[in-house]
């Protein structure tokens, strides 16, 4: 893969939202949103109920938009179907694995579902990387919350996704786990990849991300780089101190 930023951008994991909206049971969760996400690392911010998790699920192809289209490299993700899902990984509050199976069994199963040629070897490699090698044969239900989070990260990285969507990845991790996650993400996100993560801790998020998106009540209120984040007063807004104008 090229390390030239412009070449990476041209061939990279680009997502485009065209008037994407989502309503659930008649309630609008996400207002029509048009946006181009070039390869890079984004921090998705917003208060609870802003629509962050909904947006990530729409981008992952887990939920179909009520209206509009999500395009991956110019093609609708629902047309691409499995070809898109093997490029994307979503880490959510829910584990997305089987608690009654062992950590290794889970990763081997999902490795096979992603069509990896040697799922067991890849599973063992990732268990080692996230510090769970000695717990590989234990059932996931016996794992602590932090261990589950590490396992979920290992599962997300199994198929070397180019679009990595992480919903509160630091939740449940201790300091060491958080540092490890940050280190793993640095390694895993290659130049042409797209990473979007949500967090309630912008400082920690900006150690990984270069740009931010700020959602409020289902509307994208602001986006840009770190300087814009400071200029728009997003931190204060997240603390409920001041409003951000709609642009």
């Amino acid at each position: 893969m090229s390390t030239n930023p412009s070449a990476s951008r041209a061939n990279g994991a680009k997502l485009e939202l065209r008037e994407v909206a989502k309503a659930i049971a008649g309630r609008r969760i996400l207002e029509p949103l048009s946006l181009v996400l070039e390869p890079g690392r984004y921090l998705l911010l917003g208060p609870n109920g802003a629509g962050k998790s909904t947006l990530l699920k729409l981008l992952a192809g887990l939920w179909r938009p009520s209206s509009g289209h999500v395009l991956y490299r110019g093609r609708d993700i629902y047309e691409l179907d499995g070809d898109y899902r093997r490029e994307v990984a979503l880490l959510t509050h829910e584990l997305g694995m089987y608690e009654e199976l062992t950590g290794l069994q889970n990763l081997v199963l999902f490795g096979a579902l992603y069509g990896l040629p040697r799922p067991r070897a890849r599973a063992q490699e990732l268990l080692e990387r996230v510090g769970l090698r000695f717990f590989a044969h234990e059932r996931v239900r016996a794992y602590s919350q932090g261990m589950k989070q590490r396992l979920a990260l290992a599962k997300a990285l199994l198929h070397r996704p180019r679009v990595l969507l992480l919903d509160e990845p630091f939740a449940g991790l201790d300091l060491r786990g958080a540092e490890l996650l940050q280190q793993i993400l640095e390694e895993a996100v290659s130049p042409g990849s797209l990473l979007i993560l949500t967090t309630h801790d912008p400082e920690r998020g900006f150690r990984i991300a270069e740009r931010f998106l700020y959602l409020e009540r289902g509307v994208l209120r602001a986006y840009g780089d770190r300087a814009r984040f400071d200029a728009e007063g997003i931190r204060e807004r997240l603390r409920g101190i001041r409003d951000v104008g709609v642009f």
């Binding site: 887990l62 829910e94 694995m97 009654e100 579902l113 239900r141």
Partner: peptide
């Protein structure tokens, strides 16, 4: 119940199988 515990079904839905 097996699919609910740990939300294993979410993992299946995200996998690239039909």
């Amino acid at each position: 119940a097996l699919e609910r515990r740990g939300a294993g079904y979410l993992g299946l839905l995200l996998a690239p199988i039909p």
